[in-house]
């Protein structure tokens, strides 16, 4: 079994990042390093709230410092296009408490 441990397989794919302060940022992975610093292109933040649907805030090209990263998810485009973000209501994620 090929057990690649890095993020090579996600390069040029759309990923969903959960940061330690509870934000969710979606973008195309352009680069990364040992410390999980990430370069995201065409990125946007998805802001969750219980009052309204998910708001998408355009961020563009961003570097996220590895220290501040919790989860890097591979975004399944088909599943994502079937999601109705405007109807999705949820509390924002909590910040990581070390």
């Amino acid at each position: 079994m090929a057990t690649d441990t890095g993020l090579e397989s996600l390069i040029d794919q759309t990923i969903s990042v959960i940061t330690n302060d509870g934000r969710n940022i979606v973008g195309v992975l352009k680069g990364f390093d040992q410390a999980t610093n990430l370069i995201l292109d065409e990125s946007h933040e998805r802001v969750y709230s219980t009052k309204a649907g998910v708001e998408q805030v355009v961020l563009g090209l961003h570097i996220i410092r590895g220290d501040n990263i919790g989860v890097v998810g591979e975004l399944d485009e088909e599943l994502d296009s079937n999601l109705d973000l405007s109807a999705l209501r949820a509390h924002p994620l909590k910040a990581v408490q070390h």
């Binding site: 959960i18 998805r46 969750y48 591979e74 994620l93």
Partner: peptide, 10 residues
């Protein structure tokens, strides 16, 4: 519901 469209993650 923040990870509904994620099936593989790091």
């Amino acid at each position: 519901p923040h990870m509904l469209s994620v099936k593989n993650c790091f």
